[in-house]
Lab assay of single mutants.
Amino acid sequence: MALNTPQITPTKKITVRAIGEELPRGDYQRCPQCDMLFSLPEINSHQSAYCPRCQAKIRDGRDWSLTRLAAMAFTMLLLMPFAWGEPLLHIWLLGIRIDANVMQGIWQMTKQGDAITGSMVFFCVIGAPLILVTSIAYLWFGNRLGMNLRPVLLMLERLKEWVMLDIYLVGIGVASIKVQDYAHIQAGVGLFSFVALVILTTVTLSHLNVEELWERFYPQRPATRRDEKLRVCLGCHFTGYPDQRGRCPRCHIPLRLRRRHSLQKCWAALLASIVLLLPANLLPISIIYLNGGRQEDTILSGIMSLASSNIAVAGIVFIASILVPFTKVIVMFTLLLSIHFKCQQGLRTRILLLRMVTWIGRWSMLDLFVISLTMSLINRDQILAFTMGPAAFYFGAAVILTILAVEWLDSRLLWDAHESGNARFDD
């Protein structure tokens, strides 16, 4: 018995066209964080690309023209004298008006014999932002004059995390709450300039795509075929072959399989920071003279006294001054041990922890910024005066060393310790 099946006739004509040209192939790229070699397709503007294995951002879609970056830099340069030299806060102490600005706080630190601690604050609040705007201006002028731009481009990517104007702005709020127990506070004209400078700096850093600047100024022929001998440069993120001198053909720094002496430098910085954190938390970090009496505060006791007036601000200072430094030390110690013992479990967790400490590390400088600003506000000789204690130097040095330890660690070593050939990683 035959089955009668109805015929289905399409209502619209289906047209099949042959592909007349070869589909576009992607360029081969190595991930600078996990060293995976993959094919990167062509990316349009405002599109980002991520590593298929570790999800690290390979290409950032946010990109401004150099002219727009230069305009932002010149605007920031105009704001800087007002943000640093004009009063941020006014207080009335014992019937006398006192003005506080950024430069005055750094000068008070240096004047009291601790120039190293003052230079830490100076670099993060004044030096690094000033280098940022002058570097962008150098790129703008240098591109037109045919100057060598490689050193500036190499420095810009590392400079971003040292620009800490946003953290200093939080420190202004913390210092205001600490001082309000002794005097009446009012915002100064410099505060508005400083807030504007923070906003412009944040926007500029978020749109400063150094890798795209490398592509514009020093374009290189990408690798179009897969080759395990391809290496990625950690300076400019170019994937290719080393030249005859073993250097990256684009930025001219040595092109090595792994960062040289990464573990040794990381261990040295980490152990030194552990040693410095002990006096930083045991010795007094601030000293207040009130009517001839002397009151010393460690980091913890200062947080407890701050909690009596504002528990939320005390929580912020606790996280930045105690929780973050010790968390960074514990995480980095764990990561280094996992590399030495070739741990194969929990790779995803370790990668996330490394990215976390990379982002939060700079916030530990908050305590030094609060001390710097408070020193310029309260300084009335023996009637009422505020000065920093010996722990300030140890704390600042420990924070900087932990930042350097994270920067010096080559994250690809975590993958080397893991089993080879993993296309995915999980716990």
Rank of each mutant, 00 (worst) to 15 (best):
T11I: 13
T11S: 12
A18H: 09
I19D: 10
L23Y: 11
D27R: 14
C34F: 00
M36N: 11
L37S: 12
S48I: 15
Y50M: 09
C51R: 06
P52F: 04
C54T: 00
S65N: 13
L66S: 14
L66C: 10
T67P: 14
T67R: 13
A73V: 09
L77Y: 04
L77G: 13
L78A: 08
L79S: 04
L89C: 10
L93Q: 01
G95V: 00
I98M: 04
A100Q: 06
K111H: 15
Q112S: 12
G113T: 11
G113C: 10
V121N: 05
F122W: 04
F122Y: 15
F123M: 02
A128L: 02
S135W: 01
F141S: 01
N143D: 14
N143Y: 15
G146Q: 03
M155F: 02
M155S: 06
K160R: 14
W162D: 01
G171W: 00
V174C: 14
V179S: 14
Q180W: 11
I185N: 03
G188R: 13
V189P: 11
L191S: 11
T202W: 15
V203E: 05
L208P: 15
L208G: 08
N209T: 13
E211N: 11
E215Q: 09
Y218E: 07
Q220S: 07
D227T: 09
K229A: 06
R231T: 06
G235Q: 01
G235T: 03
Q244H: 09
C248F: 00
I253G: 02
R256H: 05
R256L: 06
R259P: 04
A268W: 00
A272D: 02
V275T: 07
V275R: 00
L278D: 07
L282R: 04
L283D: 05
L283N: 04
L283A: 13
I285N: 01
Y289V: 02
Y289L: 02
L290H: 06
N291D: 02
G292P: 01
R294N: 03
L300K: 02
M304N: 09
L306T: 02
A307V: 14
S309K: 02
A314T: 10
A314K: 05
F318H: 08
L323F: 05
V324D: 02
F326C: 09
I330E: 02
L336N: 12
L336W: 06
L336R: 00
F341N: 10
F341M: 07
F341D: 05
K342A: 13
G346L: 14
T349F: 13
L354K: 13
R355L: 12
V357P: 04
D367M: 00
L368S: 04
V370C: 07
M375P: 01
L384P: 01
P390V: 06
A391P: 01
A391K: 00
Y394S: 01
F395S: 03
F395H: 02
V399K: 00
R424Q: 12
D427I: 15
D427E: 10
